[in-house]
């Protein structure tokens, strides 16, 4: 009985020390980590919705979670476009994309936030050379074909998933909001 108590006490001491060190580290790094996340998001927002189009981006929250962002231009409260995040399973992972569109459905910017597609093939959906095909096009006319959007060579499945997710969610967004 005595040894068990001794072991328990030693384990308790070790864990206490570990926990207090971790708590300190957590508190030191917490503001910095939050700032990094905020910066990353602000940068992504700016990229999909540049200042020329909208200089004020406001989150729309529901139950404390950001659903999408509204983009305004100038001082007027004239709504100019939307930014939102879409997810869809591609070839080997969920492709998460931030989409910025105008109210009439013109694509302003796209940015793949996270994906884990095949290196050298599917990952190229995040490349600028693939994404720039979408810019300044109306979402409703996007399609994978020779004269429209060229799929990434050898990665048709990833390309199609990416396009579908952008297209269908944009259409839905516009339908709900423009009514």
């Amino acid at each position: 009985m005595n040894t068990i108590l001794k072991f328990a006490f030693i384990l308790f001491l070790v864990n206490l020390a570990a926990a207090s060190i971790l708590a300190t580290t957590y508190n030191i790094t917490k503001p910095k980590i939050e700032e990094q996340i905020r910066m990353a998001q602000a940068e992504a927002l700016k990229q999909v919705m540049p200042e020329e189009v909208a200089d004020r981006i406001e989150p729309v929250e529901k139950d404390g979670v950001v659903q999408y962002w509204k983009a305004f231009k100038g001082k007027s409260s004239q709504l100019n476009g939307y930014v939102f995040i879409v997810k869809k399973y591609g070839y080997s992972s969920v492709i998460e994309t931030m989409v910025g569109i105008k109210k009439d459905g013109t694509v302003i910017g796209l940015r793949v936030i996270s994906q884990n597609e095949t290196p050298g093939l599917g990952v190229k959906v995040a490349d600028i050379s693939f994404i720039k095909q979408f810019i300044n096009r109306n979402v409703s006319e996007l399609e994978l074909s020779k004269n429209n959007i060229n799929a990434v060579a050898g990665a048709t499945i990833s390309s199609r998933a990416f396009l579908d997710s952008v297209k269908s969610s944009s259409m839905e967004m516009l339908k709900n909001k423009n009514e």
Partner: peptide, 15 residues
């Protein structure tokens, strides 16, 4: 403990 310190530090300074 050390791994968690590394992870937090990395997230804060090398995201």
């Amino acid at each position: 403990t050390f791994v968690t310190i590394v992870e937090l530090a990395m997230k804060a300074y090398a995201p």
